[in-house]
Design a protein around this nucleic acid. Structure first.
Lengths: 338, 338
DNA sequence: TCTTGTTATGAAAACGTTTTCTTAAAGTGG
DNA sequence: CCACTTTAAGAAAACGTTTTCATAACAAGA
């Protein structure tokens, strides 16, 4: 197999190397005749640009960073899938950068990343997308970034959202439509934007249906199985027991299953349960968990797309894009039976 | 911040560019005095090599590919963690390459990968590491690779294993020590090396303890929740019901939980259950699942290490390295009560 | 017609390395 | 002590691009 570089393409096309480069990079002011010849030659030779050489000269890497703090593995995998799809499509590589935002060395690791940053931009996933210190670091060092589901929207940079609020609103409305009026709610980590939006959706749905909001039906969880277990136990042992529990994520919903089993409550006959996220685990719970699916991969794809637009300075009007979630109705809910 | 390249280092050290390069690449035949001066200069300037330029000239990418066919998300994440750790340590980047070996376009995707391969090598995770067609592609195209848990060992290339056999042996022995003699076994996907080894460990442990092997206690599963459910139902509805079920992975063990609940069998009092893999889900099952933890990250780390040794032609004697698994005893097993 | 300005094109420099080539110095054997 | 080989170091070429610079062709204005 003959090695094919710009030089060989140029000689096939009968033009200069510079002209080929101009066509490749879509510069203006290039004669249509030459352009046609070059494009023909590109095809016949099967030319593929050498990214190392191109990057070396033009000072970019054709590589993006995907920054996330390991939430659930299934979230991570979906995130990667979406980001990778868009990167592939646009001829970019993806460097994954997992870290743990609760670790002591977290900020040090981020500082390191920023200091020796070699890539063209960063996609920041939650909950890091919510951390002002991190975002400021990128800002100060002129590193292009887009965020997924950030809470602080002040920034002028593009970001993508998913409609946590609307999904929680719809789910609550669905539960009300089944006849439930005492809907327990387990909140997620305090300060996390998703927690806040999900809770607000729940409250507003109650309000819209003229059901009085009852503070005693709400517990402050932390998105983990353990915190979910504590909250579920409190809710289910109270005199004021709810007929359904809406957990802010699936992991806490799984904890509700555990407590329900211990208290001999049959799901869904004595207690309905719903979660949020549609992690793979929902299918292994029995009965299968009714929950909410976020378009994670789609969000990541869009975040990459916006980042590349930003980098390549294409016009870039819609800075914030929001995606809808989807209610996934399975077997963990039933109509209200007093 | 002054930009620092080889040229500036050379001028600080008072030597030629070529000498600096020789020191950087640990070539022999370089005067100790010069070497010292260069090393000093490298420190004071804080030089970092430009991988694009280096790679362009020396024809390598300082990037490895991690090839896997999405088993469980938690497996993938562990795999990445280990591979990334070693790559970081050695100054390499990691490109992840997820795919689905059951998809129609699988071979096409692999062929594409091979055809336009730009990286320095590939780490192949199971079950792809077992697929001769894929391995042959790498072999034919002279792409350096290492495999994790391959079944076909003929190849002279380095690979890492984990002792599935020994772990299954130990787990079975543990169950026998609890007094169980009727141990049901759900096999994994037929043809998969892990399936085979785990089953063999189970059988040999029975043999060692002089417990007769009973074919009717074995079901052929496929590593998925659904197949696990079918197998569990068959085992638990038979007249010859086992007192414990050893599932070849956690997902199938979770299915056993579901069937047990349907049949009103209390775990662990009426039925013990054990799994394999120690996925995060085990902690959400109730009671928490006794299972086996593989050192996935460690294996990936080692695989990367061996791959880089191979690429850089360092001596490389131990071609196959095996790691032990760890029994994780939780609450899903109890002593045998007739 | 002559200058001036604009434009498309090719030649050549540049990016930061590694590697080959050249040469001066040092070592070796007769 | 001379011819010859070996060695270490610097100069320069090479990797495959992009970008700057120079120039030729052409159009426009006086």
């Amino acid at each position: 197999m003959e090695k094919v570089n710009i030089k060989s393409v140029a000689s096939v096309a009968g033009v200069s190397i510079a002209s080929v480069s101009r066509v490749l990079n879509k510069k203006e002011n290039v004669n249509p005749a030459i352009k046609a010849k070059v494009e023909e030659a590109l095809k016949t030779t099967g030319y593929r640009r050498n990214l190392q050489a191109s990057g070396l000269r033009a000072k970019h890497s054709y590589t993006l960073t995907l920054l996330y703090s390991d939430p659930s593995p299934s979230y991570v995998v979906d995130l990667q899938k979406g980001a990778l799809a868009e990167c592939d499509k646009q001829g970019y590589s993806l460097n994954i950068f997992p870290c743990n935002h609760r670790n002591d060395d977290f900020l040090e690791r981020i500082t390191d990343l920023v200091k020796h940053f070699k890539n063209d931009g960063v996609v920041v996933a939650p909950p890091i997308s919510d951390m002002a210190e991190v975002i400021n670091l990128f800002e100060e060092n002129d590193i292009p970034y887009t965020r997924i589901s950030p809470y602080i929207i002040e920034s002028e940079r593009p970001s993508v959202f998913c409609n946590d609020y609307g999904a929680a609103f719809d789910m609550t409305t669905y539960l009300l439509s089944l006849g439930h009026e005492r809907i327990g709610f387990i909140k997620g980590t305090d300060g996390h934007s998703a927690s806040k939006n999900r809770f607000q959706g729940y409250k507003d749905a109650l309000f819209t249906q003229r059901i009085e909001f009852d503070e005693s039906l709400v517990e402050q969880g932390g998105f983990s199985f353990d915190t979910g277990e504590v909250c579920a136990r409190r809710l289910l042992k109270s005199d004021n027991k709810p007929s359904v529990i809406f957990a802010s994520n699936d992991e806490m919903a799984a904890a509700v299953y555990k407590v329900a089993a211990q208290l001999k409550l049959d799901i869904p006959n004595n207690l309905s349960v719903v979660g949020f996220d549609d992690t793979p685990m929902t299918k292994f719970l029995w009965p299968a968990l009714t929950t909410i699916r976020q378009p994670i991969a789609t969000q990541a794809k869009q975040a990459v797309n916006m980042l590349l637009n930003y980098i390549n300075d294409k016009s870039n009007e819609d800075l914030q894009i929001s995606f809808d979630c989807e209610l996934v109705l399975r077997e963990s809910t039933s109509i209200y039976r007093p």
